[in-house]
Computed example of a mutant assay.
Amino acid sequence: MNKILNLLLPRFLTEEVALHDNGDHLVIVCPMTEVKPGERFHAVATMRVFNLFGRTLLPRMVSGPWPWPSIPDIEPSELPPCPFCEGPPSITVQSFELRGPVYRQAFYGCAGVDIDAYVFCHACGAQGPQYENVIFHEVDYLSAEVEAARLWIERSAKHRDLYDGSAADGLTIYPRRGNRA
């Protein structure tokens, strides 16, 4: 459908592009939609062009260039098992707009994708706290996974002080001696 529109409908297009530094200046490599996960370039810019019968005319940089988003060094952390069934945890990133999972990719469009990232138990389906954000690049996706993992790890110790206080008062033992008939 886009090929037909490109041939028949003259129009302005705006998209982000990957740029390569050849020593003298930055050169457009490809649109960000065609960058594969793990590929790295020198910069990103937003270009506006006039498309006439599939030909690009009047290219103009609207914003940028910005340095290529770098993937931070992420310290590995072990996810604790499910607090209910001791099942294995699994991280997922979902989008209600797309009605399903969001997969890791280099670019998610100029408008981004509204996501919920969380850890769930693969055995019983228990779900940890959600991390909500709009992601634009692969770096944002990885940050969402890290934040979901952090929330899962912290959720198990979140109210530990309340449990310890109840245990010290003997309120976690059942049946309680005072409750017997």
Results as ranks from 00 to 15, higher is better:
V17L: 05
V17M: 04
L19M: 04
L19N: 00
L19I: 00
H20A: 06
H20D: 07
D21T: 00
D21C: 01
N22G: 03
G23Q: 13
D24S: 02
H25A: 04
H25D: 06
L26Q: 01
I28W: 04
V29W: 01
C30D: 10
C30I: 08
C30Q: 13
P31H: 10
P31D: 15
M32E: 15
M32A: 15
M32L: 15
M32V: 13
E34P: 08
V35R: 08
V35S: 09
V35L: 06
G38W: 15
G38S: 13
E39T: 08
E39A: 11
E39R: 14
F41E: 14
H42I: 00
H42L: 02
A43Y: 07
A43H: 06
A43C: 05
V44D: 15
V44L: 12
V44E: 13
A45K: 01
A45I: 01
T46R: 09
T46C: 13
M47C: 06
M47Q: 11
M47L: 14
R48L: 14
V49W: 11
L52S: 10
F53T: 05
G54A: 13
R55L: 09
T56Y: 11
L57N: 03
L58C: 04
L58I: 01
R60V: 02
R60Y: 04
R60L: 07
M61A: 02
V62Y: 06
V62C: 08
S63C: 06
S63G: 06
G64E: 03
W66R: 11
P67F: 05
P69S: 14
P69Q: 15
S70W: 06
S70A: 12
P72M: 08
D73V: 05
I74Q: 09
S77V: 11
S77E: 12
L79N: 11
P81G: 09
P81E: 10
C82V: 10
P83N: 10
P83G: 09
P83L: 10
P83S: 11
F84S: 09
F84V: 11
C85N: 13
E86W: 12
E86R: 09
